[in-house]
């Protein structure tokens, strides 16, 4: 709690197109995790761990076992979701990239891609300065922390989610941050000053069996989530 009090709150950088005229955006390639993920919150295992840990050392052991069992279950569920989506040739990166490019072009940006190796996974790329970059050109990184299907406790259904960190810097002088924000599709907690998008309620599955029975719908749900997130990213650049 004391530590939490000392943490500097996240500070977004809103983009101002009038004050900073950007006309050309190079979008960093390979921004989403390689595989579709899962996110399980408020599970029985997590709650058991919390309850058990209040009962001292022995409780911690019980809790750790419960959490381990829960992790094993989730790993199996993730594989089943991945297999179901693979039957639809689902490619999240391609869907997101195409939707982002389309939305940016609609806003009269010239769009290209740029390959910058990500030294640490789940961290924004370090953009090298490009002295030859023409004025008004920027590099946009849309780092996906995780995306896929999530289940919150036992009273909800499996629904799509996406968590993204977007940052745009000046290509000539990357120290100039032109935009920085975080976007969550289907957030469980609305964080202050970051962007959230409500989930499309049409895409929900009571059990993994239901998702496996209708992989087309599962792919459509995740596609809708990625498209909405890409559009929200482009909207921050208006």
């Amino acid at each position: 709690m004391v530590l939490a009090g000392c943490v500097t709150p996240y500070q977004p950088v809103p983009f101002d197109r009038t004050a900073t005229p950007v006309s050309k955006i190079a979008v960093v390639e390979n921004t989403l995790p390689l595989e579709v993920g899962t996110q399980k919150l408020a599970t029985n295992g997590a709650n058991m761990m919390s309850a058990a840990s209040s009962a001292g050392l022995a409780g911690l052991l019980v809790g750790a076992v419960a959490a381990g069992v829960e992790a094993g279950i989730e790993s199996g569920q993730r594989e089943r979701i991945q297999k179901a989506l693979a039957t639809q040739n689902f490619n999240g990166e391609a869907i997101f990239d195409a939707a982002l490019e389309e939305a940016l072009k609609q806003q009269d940006y010239r769009v290209s891609t740029i390959a910058i190796p990500r030294s640490k996974s789940r961290e924004l790329v370090v953009v090298p300065a490009n002295d030859a970059a023409e004025p008004g050109s920027a590099v946009l990184d849309t780092l996906g922390f995780n995306y896929g299907y999530q289940l919150v406790g036992n009273s909800t259904q499996w629904r799509p989610f996406v968590t993204l960190h977007v940052r745009m810097v000046d290509h000539k002088d990357p120290k100039k941050i032109l935009l920085d924000n975080k976007i969550t599709y289907n957030p469980v907690v609305k964080s202050d000053v970051t962007v959230s998008i409500p989930v499309d309620e049409a895409f929900a599955f009571q059990k993994i069996d239901d998702l496996e029975a209708n992989p087309t719908k599962a792919a459509e749900g995740l596609e809708a989530a990625l498209r909405a997130t890409a559009k929200a990213t482009a909207d921050l650049l208006r």
């Binding site: 919150l41 408020a42 309850a51 840990s53 209040s54 001292g56 036992n154 009273s155 469980v188």
Partner: peptide, 21 residues
């Protein structure tokens, strides 16, 4: 939530979470 803790002879609290949609 609150529970009796045999190690401290007192009540200790823990948090649980649930989902709602």
């Amino acid at each position: 939530n609150y529970s009796y803790n045999p190690y401290t002879y007192g009540s200790s609290s823990y948090q649980t979470q649930y989902g709602r949609e």
